[in-house]
Amino acid sequence: MEILVDAVLLTLLVVITLAILFQRNLFAVVLLAGAYSFLMASIMLVLDAVDVAMTEAAVGAGISTALFLATLYLTHGKEYLQPNFKFQSILVVVLAGGMLIWGMWDMPEFGVMQAPLHENTAPGYLDASKNHLMPPNVVTAVLADYRSFDTLGETTVIFTAGIGVLLILRGRKKPKKSKNKAENSHET
């Protein structure tokens, strides 16, 4: 069942990517990119990477749509054709992709228990996080405690977001004057 959903979603992803490539109207590209990120988020969720799915949906469909549109405000809504075909760039892209595929051959098979990651690294963390009085969730323990200096930036961002939310919730009461003004202008 999971295979079926994965296959359908990935096929749709390929179709949308090709459509983005051949689309010249940049508004349509923005819309298709939004659809793309929703599909991508669904795939991430089916693969059980919930946090990545959340990030993909928030960043891909939420903020980058607004950013793309803000960019389109400064530019034209239409893409011009490249006047001449660059051979070197195609070469670089093909080379880089080939190297990535070549490197993929050395990876252990997907989901195999004998992979080095599951034999050497993971058991240590699974055992140690119980004894070190860490948070009960192992992933949270690795992210927030073992890698606390790595995630210091993330924690700062989360706190900043919390402060922002508090400010928004608090600031609703004060500026009553401007709100009344807007309502009056709406009525007239």
Binding site: V30, A57, A58, Y73
Partner: peptide
């Protein structure tokens, strides 16, 4: 996550529509 998606979807579409209607965010 489905709840978040629903809200984001609406917000994104309305953003695009607002831009298309007024040419400015």
């Amino acid at each position: 996550i489905a709840l978040t998606y629903g809200l984001l979807n609406t917000a994104a579409t309305l953003t695009v529509l607002k831009y298309y209607r007024h040419g400015d965010l």
